[in-house]
Computed example of a mutant assay.
Amino acid sequence: MLMWILLFFIGLAAGTIGSLVGLGGGIIIVPVLLIVDQYTDWLPVLSPQMIVGSSIVVLVAIGLSSTLAYMKKKSVDYKSGALFFLGSGPGAILGAWLNKFIQVDYFSIYFGVFMVLVSILLMVRNRLRPMKVNGQFARSYTDSDGVQVNYTFSALAAVLVSFIVGVISGLFGIGGGSLMVPAMILLFGFPTTVAVATSMFMIFLSSITGTLTHLALGNIQWFLLLGLIPGAWIGAKCGSFINQKLSDNTIVIILRWMLIIVGVRLIWQGTMG
C-alpha cells in the first residue's frame, strides 16, 4: 500500500511541475525513483533502463493531460509544435544512438553548467532580441486579457534548433522541454504561456515515439505505471491550471530554478560517474 501511495505522489509532483513550466516531468520521476530504488526496499529491484522507459510512458499521460487542459485556454501553437517536432523527433533518436559511443558522464558536467547559464540568460531575456532570419513563420496569440501578441520566426531555424535540442535531450536523457522552452522564449520570441503549452504538446508527441522504442526493448515496468499515471494525470491538470493563474515573469522565475536544479543534477551525475 505504501508503494502505491508513494508512486501516486511522485506522479502528482512530476505532473504538476512538468506541466507548470513545460519540462514534462521526467526530471522528477527518474532521479526520485533511482534514489528510492537505491536506498529503500519499497520497490522491486529496477534497472535504470526500466526507470527511464517507464518514465517516458508517464510523459505520454502528462503530455496528453496538459495539452487537453491548455487546449481549452487556446494557448497551444499546434503548427509551431509540429514544426519543432520535425526537428526534435529525429534529433532525439540520433542522440539516443550517439549515447552508446560517447562518455556521457564527462559531458554531463559541461552540459549542467550550460543549463545553469541558460537560466541566467532568462534573467536578462527582456534585453535580448529574438533571432531575425529570412523566411519568417508569423504567428499570433491573444492572452486572457484580450491582448494580441504577434511573434515571427524562421521555420528553417526552428527545425535546426529543435533538432539540436532533440540530439542533446536524447544524448543526456533529459526532457527536450528543458531546452525547448528557453529556446522558444529567447530565440523565437514566444509568449511564455504559449511556449510552455506548445512544449507540452511536443512532449506528448515525442514521448509516444519514445514509448514505442522502450516497449520494443522491454524497458517498461507496468506496475510502476499503475501508481504513477493517475497521479501524473491529475498533477498535469493542476500544473496547467496554476500556469494560467501566474504571470509570465513568475513562470520564468520557476523555470529558471528548475533549469538550475536540472543543471546541478547533471553536474552531480557527471562527477559521480
Rank of each mutant, 00 (worst) to 15 (best):
G263C: 04
L94C: 12
Y106H: 14
A232L: 03
T250K: 04
I203M: 10
M50R: 11
M1R: 15
V181H: 02
M184I: 06
Q103D: 14
G146D: 09
L266D: 01
Q136N: 12
S178F: 13
I102Y: 05
A157Y: 05
L43D: 07
M180A: 07
T213Y: 12
I260L: 06
K245R: 14
Q148V: 15
Y106T: 11
M200D: 02
L86Y: 00
I93A: 10
Y106W: 15
N126Q: 14
D37F: 06
I208A: 01
I208Q: 01
F204I: 00
M272I: 11
L33S: 06
G15P: 07
M200W: 01
G81M: 07
M50T: 05
V57Y: 11
V113W: 01
T211I: 02
T152R: 14
L215K: 08
W97F: 12
F114L: 13
Y141A: 00
M272D: 02
G18D: 03
S47D: 09
L64N: 03
S75M: 14
A195Y: 10
F8Y: 12
G239V: 03
R129T: 07
L160A: 15
G235I: 01
L34G: 15
S119T: 05
P191V: 04
R125H: 08
L217K: 15
G91N: 09
V104R: 10
F201I: 00
A155N: 10
S144C: 09
K100R: 15
I28G: 00
V45P: 05
I5F: 13
I220D: 00
S66C: 06
F188V: 06
D41K: 10
G91Y: 08
A69W: 05
F163E: 01
S178C: 13
D248I: 08
V264D: 05
Q269G: 12
S55I: 00
S199P: 09
L225V: 09
D143E: 06
G173W: 03
R125W: 05
P90E: 01
S199W: 08
L98A: 14
F223D: 14
K237R: 15
T213P: 03
T16M: 11
M123E: 14
W97G: 00
C238H: 12
L68K: 15
V21K: 05
F201P: 02
I168Q: 06
T209G: 13
Q148E: 14
I35P: 03
S75V: 01
F153V: 07
K79H: 08
G87F: 01
M200Q: 12
V76F: 00
K73S: 11
L212T: 12
T152V: 11
V167M: 10
Q221L: 09
F107M: 09
A61C: 12
K237V: 10
A183G: 07
A232C: 02
T192I: 13
S55Y: 07
G263W: 00
A96D: 09
Y106E: 03
K79N: 12
Y106R: 15
Q49K: 13
L186V: 10
L187I: 04
G235T: 08
Q148Y: 04
I29G: 09
M258I: 15
F190L: 03
L83E: 05
I229C: 05
M50C: 03
I29D: 03
